[in-house]
Nucleic acid binder design. Structure first.
Lengths: 139, 139
DNA sequence: CCGTGAAGCTTGTAATTTGCAAGCAAAGTA
DNA sequence: TACTTTGCTTGCAAATTACAAGCTTCACGG
């Protein structure tokens, strides 16, 4: 997936060109569902991504406007932009899908139930919390 | 992404291990939203995937139970399994996301509106049609 | 301030994977 | 029976990844 021109205007293809690799979505997941916000936080996630891959993915995600970096050097922190945050519904559906089909899923049962029964509420909660986090970064 | 052991039990990671590359989701898209059902159909999709990559992805998708092949050789056809079809909600959300954020999206405006206003109905239609297609393959 | 150490990357390199071109067998077709 | 698709497999150069090492900036203790 190193291309300069878009392969097509298909919306699924657009999504793939934004985060169609084995790692980008993990960064988005971290920013969306965990407290991980720094470079080393991401590195320390269970999946163990390589440092050069993380650096390149963070650059690409920023370039595509999904993620924003505030601060530099030691104190740098990352956050989802509104565009990144808009992936929340898709992420919840992916979680629901894996929760249903992966026998060994680590997704908390209670969370899966809440996605199913109270999708709108769950979305509103995350959206509110994360957009607030983004706003704070604007100051 | 050539691994033998799972990186984690995270549901997002599970999804990535199933189709976390630049091509698999295009095959799923073809089976879900287009009439493409054969090897050469997939090859002829606009994005132009390489034949060896297509072969390896079809094998993996079958191995993971997302896609089923009926017939052999010249007459072979592919279809989504129930597990593959269950990706429909996630796919619709991805389409909605790209429709919102890609200035040049090829997603038909009417379809985007229908996803937004009548999500349940759209899902029911696809689900019914595609599961019927799957059943027919059972005979 | 000066040394130390951790955070945040960059660089080098070997191993994998990809993209592209050929090749090939089986099933239609003429 | 020869010809042509279809559905792949194989070979290889080029790109990407994984892994390890190194560099630089900044915070903190003394």
């Amino acid at each position: 997936m190193k291309r300069t021109v878009r392969r097509s205007d298909c919306p699924i293809n657009y999504a793939l060109e934004m985060f169609g690799d084995g790692w980008s979505l993990l960064v988005i997941r971290d920013l969306m569902f965990t407290e991980r916000r720094t470079y080393s936080d991401f590195l320390n996630a269970e999946e163990g991504m390589a440092t050069n891959i993380l650096a390149s993915r963070l650059k690409k995600l920023q370039g595509d406007g999904l993620v924003r970096k505030t601060g530099t050097g030691r104190g740098a922190r990352y956050a989802l932009t509104p565009k990144g945050l808009d992936l929340l519904p898709a992420m919840l559906e992916l979680i629901a899908w894996s929760g249903k089909h992966d026998r060994f899923t680590g997704a908390p049962k209670g969370f899966l139930t809440r996605i199913q029964k109270d999708r709108g509420r769950v979305m509103a909660e995350f959206r509110s919390r994360l957009s607030q986090e983004y706003e704070i970064g604007n100051r």
